[in-house]
Nucleic acid binder design. Structure first.
Length: 647
DNA sequence: TGCACCAGCGCC
DNA sequence: AAACGGCGCTGATGCA
């Protein structure tokens, strides 16, 4: 194939030092508030030295980049099209000693839309940028796979690899048998960490380049056809995307450092391979079981619908206005159709009972009845996609499908099975958010309880019921669970009452709830004091134990201030465990298949089950201990032939 | 017809 | 003064 190669000579003279053309979009920031934990203070020297690959290693003046004369348009780049094995060999030699490589890919699929699916699409171009060199644009359609060795060596080398949304490229590269090793840097994740939850979109490359380099990155070619003869415009576009990553990194890293986000960035970058692994692996489902379950759900939903019809006739039960009117007409005293208003009326009004049943069954059916459609035609498994910083707190989110919301019921989780000869090993942190609370607040009673191996729910029960530990009933322990989870986030008495009823089936009066509340804060004085400190500090920023930041535009809700560092620390811990795990799984075989906030699921050969149990437990505990210094970390691990086989 | 928003509900 | 937090998916609704 003939490609017009746009060769631009190497720059002959040193470039002038660049203007500081960027500005921190977060400026002016509130002063850091360290009420969460004094260990969180930005120990800048430590932060700066801790991770060499995040250091500002190469000044912009040596990157060989053209400084834009116009601040608007992203500068043209010097690039070289690589369309033969000999050229590849030659260019890789130039890159060999580079400490930092910026990498991007252009992908294509056999069918429209498959360009985003690594199991269907193919890599057309791999663009590699290194300081002082032309960007290499490697045409994978022109290089025989048996002659890719130089490229593989380069990407498996020890250079820092910079990507924007690394997960995407790494999935394709993995499938193309071009594994990427070495430290990763992801400019998309870096930008998300810097914004710290102030916005939830605008993180594609064009947006981030605009925000941090103040340049317009042309994107017209992004959705062009990458499967045929390529135009010079396409090649230049591809090269530019890689080149800009080098400069982006140079700008983002000092910002991360100034914001004391280097440590958490390191965690996020190191965890990327685990998410690549999980998305590529997906989870196997037992088709027969799943089909049977779907049938059952459909029947249940239909039966409930028919039953409801007896009461309400032919109106649409999914329509709230219609349903509300129907209920009123039947004399049910309601002003809304919410679950909470309906629940107490179920006993007295058969129509309400029928409606609740209908809602439950039809919701399940419509939400989970589509799971079979999610089985991938190539792999036969379900491949969700994860958003590594999907929640503002730092938690991971999951979609298409959201396996994190799979019902706990065995009929659902039992459908998720390993391949024949494998088992699923499931690890859960025990009461991780309560332990985080103990660590963050340094509440003496909580710390003592955990360090003495006591059951904290039981302890709370004995406190709020004002009776000895031994006398606590199962019911009372359940109630205390609600109290624990509710009150550390400053739940009011009324909400606590509702919550205990709905979540744990525990009834209490409003007066009882109020008493529980008071006794709770009397007993857990450290938690109470922490609440007071937070309230008085009125920060617009919180930090997790790993230093992850959350910012607020206006005044945060007090409950968000209580929750963010606790929930976020769980995210830190689980990610740390995932990152350690992905490098330790090699000996065992198999891989990571899922994570659900405080849970990690791996699939391994049956013969390695016991070994995997130990590895998973040890690794999760090690990760927890990294942040919980005064509270013991407990992990429940079990294995079996389905996701339902929990401890 | 498409899009944004909401309620409702699954999970941690 | 009082306040539980964080997600994604579905169908209905209302506006353009």
């Amino acid at each position: 194939m003939m490609i017009e190669v746009m060769e631009i000579p190497e720059p002959v003279s040193p470039l002038p030092p660049p203007e500081k053309i960027f500005k921190n979009p977060l400026e002016p920031t509130e002063p850091l508030s360290h009420f969460v934990n004094n260990r969180l203070q930005c120990q800048s020297s430590e932060e700066k030295m801790a991770h060499c690959h995040l250091s500002h290693s190469e000044p912009l003046s040596q990157t060989g980049m053209v400084i834009p004369t116009s601040p608007k348009i992203s500068p043209p780049v010097q690039y070289r099209y690589i369309g033969s094995s000999d050229e590849l060999k030659e260019v890789v030699r130039f890159f060999q000693d580079a400490k930092v490589l910026a990498i991007d890919t252009e992908t294509t699929g056999a069918e429209k839309g498959d360009g985003l699916d690594p199991h269907k699409g193919k890599i057309r171009l791999i663009q590699i940028a290194a300081a002082g060199h032309h960007v290499a644009v490697v045409d994978m359609f022109e290089i025989p796979s048996e002659e890719l060795a130089p490229l593989k060596d380069l990407l498996a080398g020890s250079a820092i690899k910079v990507f924007h949304n690394a997960k995407f490229d790494l999935k394709f590269l993995q499938i193309a048998d071009i594994p990427v090793k070495g430290q990763l840097c992801d400019t998309q994740i870096a930008a998300q960490l810097l914004i710290s939850g102030l916005k939830d979109d605008g993180y594609n490359l064009k947006d981030v380049v605009k925000d941090y380099l103040l340049e317009e990155l042309p994107k017209e070619q992004q959705v062009s056809d990458w499967s045929g003869d390529l135009t010079p415009y396409q090649i230049e576009y591809a090269a530019r995307d890689a080149a800009v990553l080098l400069r982006l990194r140079e700008v983002l890293i000092p910002l991360l450092r100034d914001a004391c986000l280097v440590k958490v960035a390191k965690i996020e970058f190191d965890t990327i391979p685990a998410f690549v692994e999980m998305e590529l692996n997906g989870m196997k489902v037992d088709r027969d079981k799943l089909n049977a379950l779907c049938l059952k759900m459909e029947e249940d939903a239909k039966e409930a619908a028919d039953n409801l019809k007896v009461f309400i006739g032919d109106i649409n039960p999914n329509s709230q206005p219609q349903m509300l009117k129907a209920l009123k007409d039947m004399g049910v005293p309601v002003e809304s159709t919410g679950k909470d208003t309906l629940a107490p009326l179920a006993a007295d009004y058969p129509v309400v009972k029928a409606l609740i049943k209908y809602r439950k069954t039809s919701k399940l059916h419509q939400a989970f009845g589509k799971l079979p459609e999610r089985i991938h035609p190539v792999t036969g498994r379900i491949h969700p996609s994860f958003d590594q910083i999907g929640a503002v707190t730092g938690r991971v989110s999951c979609k298409e499908p959201n396996l994190q919301q799979t019902p706990r019921d065995k009929s659902f989780r039992g459908c998720f099975t390993p391949e024949p000869g494998n088992v699923l090993v499931i690890g859960d942190y025990s009461q991780i958010e309560l332990r985080n609370t103990a660590e963050v607040t340094q509440d003496k009673r909580m710390l003592d309880a955990y360090n003495n191996g006591e059951d904290l729910h039981r302890l709370t029960a004995s406190i709020v019921m004002d009776k000895p530990l031994q006398g606590v009933t199962k019911q009372e322990r359940s109630a205390a669970k609600a109290v624990n989870f509710g009150l550390i986030y400053a739940m009011g008495a009324a909400t606590l009452r509702e919550y205990a009823e709905n979540s744990y089936g525990v009834s209490m009066s409003l007066e009882e709830a109020e008493i529980f509340r008071e006794r709770f804060f009397e007993a857990y004085e450290g938690v109470a004091q922490w609440h007071i400190r937070v309230k008085q500090a009125k920060p617009k920023e919180t930090r997790t134990l790993a230093g992850r930041r959350r910012l607020w535009n206006g005044w945060p809700k007090i409950t968000e201030l209580y929750n963010a560092p606790i929930q976020g620390t769980s995210g830190d811990i689980t990610k740390k465990a995932l990152s350690l795990l992905s490098t330790r799984m090699n000996d065992i075989g198999g891989g990571i298949v899922l994570t659900v906030h405080d849970e990690i699921v791996i699939e391994v050969p049956e013969s390695k089950a016991e070994e995997a149990v130990k590895l998973l437990r040890d690794t999760m505990i090690e990760a927890g201990r990294e942040y919980l210094k005064t509270v013991p970390v407990e992990v429940d691990v079990a294995y079996g032939k389905s996701w339902a086989d929990k401890a």
